[in-house]
Write a protein that binds this DNA or RNA. Structure first.
Length: 310
DNA sequence: GTGCCGATTGATGTTACATCA
DNA sequence: GCTGATGTAACATCAATCGGC
């Protein structure tokens, strides 16, 4: 339900074509806290929202997902997923395509994998869904996990996004699911998390690109202005040595030397304050490296944050 | 042999739209 | 022409499967 998503304040919209058509603000993104560190590139992106702030917490997302599932079930008035309370009851339903008896039956490989676990669990009955094939019903039934099951799984996923066999068994037992189902849920959950992370990265790079384009445009314009100035004889009279620029060590911004005609007081007003202030050595002359301009430094920091070198 | 991953399938739910009484 | 019920195609979601590593 869109209402649920919006009300929960889920943030990032990517407007993928198919979705955007109907739901312009769709594709709600979420990051697991562990996946968005404090060094997240989004925090470094100037002029953009703080994504880690605006992105929902995983719990919000979990709630949203659970809410979604719940709402669907509620609206239909049907909860298709019941936790089989006892093995006996499961046995009764085994041939009847109960949601929880949905199987892996089609794949012999996986069924075989599950079998020992069920034996071990004393819940072999659920694996009798294999007999669905024998019943001639080859269509696999779609299982929808209940709200409670999803919530527990999400909780567990928050603690550790992979399960060891022991944890898997315990969780399966607790939820009344087969271990294979728990395993599959975790796999799919990891895939979803990764997909969302990819989408976020994509969005970030898009913004990065936009910023660079804008910066490039600005620099081109500046270059044109400088070239125009260059034609003026007065420019040469007052020009600073061509290979040096002054960088403010505190803010890392490049500024023209005070005597230079290039100085633009309105552009970087605090330079004047620095230069006329107590510390006359505040500005030091540095060799100009075009790749270490503020803009490129910001981008480099962003890129490093995104893909840190080991 | 096992577990994970990416790609894919298929069941199910939602939505927008058309048709009809 | 307007309204509500019904059918349906398109799409979204997600559990489950498959093959590869």
């Amino acid at each position: 339900m869109m209402v649920g998503k919006e009300d929960l304040g889920l943030s990032l919209s990517l407007n993928f074509p198919a979705t955007a058509e109907r739901n312009p603000s769709s594709v709600q993104l979420n990051l697991m806290p562990s996946m968005v560190s404090s060094a997240s590139p989004f925090n470094l992106l100037h002029g953009t929202p703080n994504w880690s702030d605006s992105c929902p917490s995983s719990s919000d997302r979990n709630i949203a997902d659970a809410f979604k599932v719940e709402t669907r079930s509620f609206l239909k008035g049907i909860d298709v997923n019941r936790i089989p309370p006892t093995a006996a009851e499961v046995e009764e339903e085994a041939g009847v395509s109960s949601p929880n008896s949905t199987i892996s039956s089609i794949s012999g490989k996986r069924s075989e994998r599950d079998l020992p676990v069920n034996e071990h669990d004393g819940e072999r009955d659920s694996s009798r869904g294999i007999s669905d094939d024998e019943d001639g019903d080859n269509s696999r039934k779609k299982l929808r996990l209940s709200k409670d099951q999803s919530a527990v799984l999400e909780e567990s996923f928050k603690e550790h996004n992979t399960l060891n066999p022991k944890q898997k068994l315990a969780l399966a037992k607790r939820l009344g699911l087969r271990p294979r189902q728990v395993e599959v849920w975790f796999q799919n959950r990891r895939a979803r998390t990764k997909l969302k992370q990819t989408e976020v990265d994509c969005e970030f790079l898009k913004r990065c690109c936009e910023n660079l384009t804008e910066e490039n445009r600005r620099l081109q314009k500046e270059l044109q202005e400088l070239r125009a100035l260059k034609l003026s004889p007065q420019f040469y009279m007052q020009m600073a040595p061509p290979t040096t620029l002054t960088m403010c060590p505190s803010c890392e911004r490049v500024a023209a030397p005070p005597s230079s005609a290039m100085e633009k007081p309105t552009d970087h007003q605090h330079n004047r304050a620095h230069l006329t202030g107590v510390n006359q050595n505040h500005h030091r002359t540095l060799p100009f490296n075009p790749w270490s301009t503020p803009a490129t430094q910001v981008v480099h920091r962003q890129m490093n944050a995104l893909h840190p070198r080991s």
